[in-house]
């Protein structure tokens, strides 16, 4: 139940970010300066923190999505759904830690 709610919330969050992200990337068709300006905001510590939250949301949604696929298509999936949930948390966390260390070192480093 909680993982279903979290899957919804992260899905909506990623959807809205994708909308903004396609618009900011479209600035490469305007001018190098326009694009570099908006990329400057991604390098600021506050936005860097938000970006780390977004990456956490993507990791959870991605691995929980694979869990949903396994439950639906793998004959043993429903039986192991609880263990798969712990797996989702573990894998997301293991990938998030190196990312967040590197990313925050960069955005807080200037």
């Amino acid at each position: 139940m909680w993982s279903w709610v979290a899957h919804r919330v992260t899905g909506v969050l990623i959807f809205f970010f994708l909308f903004a992200h396609v618009l900011d990337t479209a600035l490469v068709r305007v001018s190098p300066e326009a694009y570099n300006d908006v990329m400057g905001t991604y390098k600021n510590p506050l936005v860097g923190l938000l970006e780390a939250g977004l990456v956490a949301a993507v990791l959870f949604h991605a691995f929980n999505g694979l869990r949903v696929v396994l439950i639906d298509f793998w004959s043993q999936g429903p039986r192991y759904q609880r263990q798969l949930s712990y797996g989702v948390i573990a894998v997301s966390f293991l990938l998030f830690v190196p990312f967040v260390i590197r990313h925050l070192t960069i955005v807080f480093g200037h």
Binding site: Y35, N36, M39, G48, V58, A62, F99, I106, H110
Partner: peptide, 24 residues
């Protein structure tokens, strides 16, 4: 999307200078 998105994040935010390297 698992492959497409996670590799996108890895190449743009982990390799090279990370977010600092992303410009025109």
């Amino acid at each position: 999307l698992v492959f497409l998105v996670l590799a996108h994040l890895f190449v743009n935010l982990m390799l090279g200078d990370g977010i600092d390297g992303v410009d025109f």
